[in-house]
Design a binder for these strands. Sequence first.
DNA 1: ACCTGAACACCGTTCAAGT
DNA 2: ACCTGAACACCGTTCAAGT
Lengths: 204, 204
Amino acid sequence: MAKSKKTYHHGDLRNTLLSAAEALLEQKGVGAVSLREVAKEAGVSHTAPYRHFVDKHALLAGLAEVGYGRLADAMDRCVDEQPDNPAKQLATSLQAYVALATRHPQMTNLMFGGVLKGHLCEGSLALESERAFNGLLRIIQNGQEAGLYISKDTEELAMFVWSLAHGFSMLISAGQMGELGNDEKAIQAILSNIGEMVITGIGV
Amino acid sequence: MAKSKKTYHHGDLRNTLLSAAEALLEQKGVGAVSLREVAKEAGVSHTAPYRHFVDKHALLAGLAEVGYGRLADAMDRCVDEQPDNPAKQLATSLQAYVALATRHPQMTNLMFGGVLKGHLCEGSLALESERAFNGLLRIIQNGQEAGLYISKDTEELAMFVWSLAHGFSMLISAGQMGELGNDEKAIQAILSNIGEMVITGIGV
DNA sequence: ACCTGAACACCGTTCAAGT
DNA sequence: ACCTGAACACCGTTCAAGT
């Protein structure tokens, strides 16, 4: 019953493929993730992946699922580390969201770039994606219960905050902000101001 | 000097290619836009496009440029139609941004999905992209001059609003909001609430 | 100048065949 | 059950050649 590493049957091919795919993704972007290259990297024939993923999109969806899992975990950590400070939970969750996006632009692009479209609302990918949103939802809820935020529909507040974090992250990771994209210090500064504006608004 | 339509030299091939590419984009997404298919649709050999675009990315960049132009025009229109009402300018620009994104999700995906990355900060694409941002910047500035918004750095306010509009649009057009993506009425309602929160914030 | 056709190295996917 | 190799229809890109 020992896990032999060199049997004809690979045994852990699925995870090996996902790791190889992530390496390719990080280094060269979604466009460079080809089933054939991933298989080669995993030391296996180019048709072997079809035993674990119905097609290329399924591989990418599996990869995105890992990314969503990390995002969800990051959200949960913001709650766990400051269980009695909802304001801090919100601030750190914004930072965490943007940090993941700027540090892993290729993964972010895969998760939100529209490559998956159809696969987003089905299966385990949808579950992880929802878990990430629920993390943020809980943070908003905590703040509302502490009397920090207006008592409008919690989901709408969450969508407001999520849109903001998401838009900012995407614009940076897509290179839309120009030179700013590489200056992590500047990003932190702007993000902190944005964090204020979320609470106070831009009205006078 | 009359524009003969059936010469050996096509004459307006560049625009014909762009139109064909946009049709393909709208119908089947970025993934389906292949140089060969576009050429076939334009009734020309599969290497002819190389006379007008150095490679496939250049074609996509040209297409995105059209999209950014429309976004910029939409922003300008918001100012022109309500020259003395900055609050209305902001509200309508948000609506325009989201409307373009929900009605042309494939084009939006091309513009912001990260396919272009490197090409974003170079040439005429950068110009059109900047023109769109400047439109929003002017709207914020108008509001500040009318004493409607806090007098912080205008660019930071614009980035705040842009991130919000962008994030909301992207989440919807990427199918991240679940069933909500197809319900234009519901989107309008949420957007109007978001428009309020931009001004007042979510703080109590 | 502008367009073509053959050629090359890559894809994703299918399928009969091997262990 | 799991993996392979040949085969097919597609790519993007290059290049000598045609008008």
